[in-house]
Design a protein around this nucleic acid. Structure first.
Lengths: 200, 200, 200, 200
DNA sequence: TATGAATGAGAATTCATTCAT
DNA sequence: CATGAATGAATTCTCATTCAT
């Protein structure tokens, strides 16, 4: 019984993930999701309050998974530099493995402040703070410059990765492979664009 | 007559900018825009094909302005490093001055691939390429590392600035001032987070 | 312009009157009303907030008419006895002339306390009070017994007439004619059933 | 087993009585009734054909009780005058004791002709005929005027009582007590409003 | 050109009823 | 007999777009 419930809930979430990614929240019809999940339209409402609730639940659940994944991976690394590199690689990897989820989070999450005023996206902040914590740790260890403001740096780093993923998500084929992109981006942040050996 | 036309067109674009920023594209009603622009609902359709067209035109026109602005500003600087710094500052400045425009570009532009399949967002690519060109120029001059892939770096830099603006746009009050944020972000990209004087 | 608006408003009210009377409020579809009124479904919502609002407006407007009618008629009579008789006749006459309106007021009005909690049916109370006033007047003139409680008597009299109309409204053909019914009912109330010449 | 069945049937009827009275037939959900009766939604359909059938059964059963009650009480009285008085008092008493039943009969019964075309409300006519019989009896005995048409008078009397009950049922508190109201109403019908000692 | 009343297709949601367990 | 999860038909209301004035 519990299993079947779980199963249907999951089927709906998965269907919604696919449909929302395909069409976007507003253009996705509840009927589309039901069809994809192979349940009746009404069944959706046994598991979710309304259309908004599907999106919110989807966020929560997927973000939970992503968060766990990332935490585990990052903790494996010892120093802050490695952690940053790992984060970059992992983020892009996760995006590749969950294109639909990524697309929704990228595209629809941004609207959250519009259509779900009360919904505070805590999971997202947790995710951002993983970066913030690495930076603070790096500063404590003297590896990262003192002047860096973690609240800005975490966003900058996330934004860089995010824009890269968007590029992938929205274009059909990848121009650069994950390893390259991750290495490039973490390198920019770690050592900068400027050529140190160059003398002006 | 031509003037009057221009005037009404502009009034509608401005109204749409405000309304779209406020409610998002899908939740903004054409009637809302008409009201804000102080024209009749039907009048909108004398100047625009349909609702989508309002959004597209808005992008084009606003992006044109932004592009011109940015080009002029960046050209004033001599070397690539200064140009990067200027770009960062200017971008955030523009966001502050055109909160509504920024919000639309941030939130709604992302959906563009969804609801306007055929619309290729060239202006945005031009904007991105401003960064790409600075980087290439820097590389040519030997200031920037050779290994940097401009196609990736331009996105990373834009993404960093963009995430910062989103933070501003979506939160009501700014935690960091523009100068600080711009300096921080361009510094990350120019010289990295890593403390060079630190010996491991 | 004003005329056309009035016209459509009226057409919708009339259509609603017919449809509500035929099927009852809950089983009447807005689409039915629109069809009957020969307007598009959406047009209804230019003139009324929602389905409830149609019913409420209908009440208000029809009751206004009925109230005016009745006031004028009753005022023509001089003494309370004649007024009571006139009221009875007029009430039944109005019911006959506006079968649909009567049916709605009879059948649907009763539910008002259920689905429109906030709607205070003042018109109906005004109507009831027309009877109450006649009774008080009769008492003041010494024609009616002092012990009569107008608050009860007005309801009793109205109830008697109303039940009679319900009988007519719900059955297809009238068993008794209006004059007879009105005379009978007002006689019951004026002089009672008891045969005074009879000696126990 | 039979007992248990009866019990569940009764529980459902009682629950339905409460819920219908509270919300009205159309706004009452079968699930509400099931919950109130502490049975599963599906169980209802083991005892009743459908939602309509619940209402019809409810009428039948409750009206049977009311009818029996009233017959017994009225038969105790000897003459027609007393019987009328008794009927009035009893009716109002029954309404008070079974507010929910009264509310349903008052509000929902009126719609019966709409949603259950084939359902002929015989019990109600039996109830009405109790009054009719008293009147005929009174006429036979010479107590009541010959000119009175029982078919009209029974409705008038019932309507008067019914309107009074509606007033009670729909308002939260009673303004007049039962004895007063019953006495007033039966007096109106027995001896009329007109003051016989008054000389015009 | 400008208007805004009218249109009607479209979508979310509800809930009586069924049926596998 | 009892359950309650699942169904899907049905209905209200919205809003982009049109068109007569």
């Amino acid at each position: 019984m519990k299993n079947k419930n779980r199963d249907k809930h999951k089927r709906i979430i998965n269907a919604a993930t696919k449909i929302f990614a395909q069409k976007g929240f507003f253009q996705a019809k509840v009927a589309d999701i039901a069809k994809e999940a192979q349940v009746a339209d009404g069944t959706i409402y046994l598991y979710f309050e309304n259309k908004d609730d599907i999106l919110i639940s989807l966020f929560e659940e997927q973000m939970n998974r992503v968060l766990e994944d990332m935490k585990t991976q990052v903790l494996k690394e010892e120093d802050a530099v490695k952690k940053i590199e790992k984060f970059a690689f992992n983020h892009l990897k996760l995006v590749e493995l969950n294109k639909n989820v990524a697309e929704i989070i990228q595209v629809e999450l941004r609207q959250s402040s519009k259509f779900m005023k009360e919904y505070k996206n805590e999971k997202f902040h947790e995710y951002l703070n993983l970066i913030g914590d690495i930076i603070k740790e790096g500063q404590k260890e003297g590896i990262f410059k003192e002047g860096i403001i973690p609240g800005i740096a975490k966003r900058a780093f996330f934004g860089a990765l995010d824009e890269m993923s968007r590029f992938w998500v929205l274009s059909s084929r990848k121009k650069y492979d994950i390893e390259t992109a991750a290495k490039q981006i973490s390198d920019y942040f770690l050592t900068g664009l400027v050529n140190n050996s160059h003398q002006t």
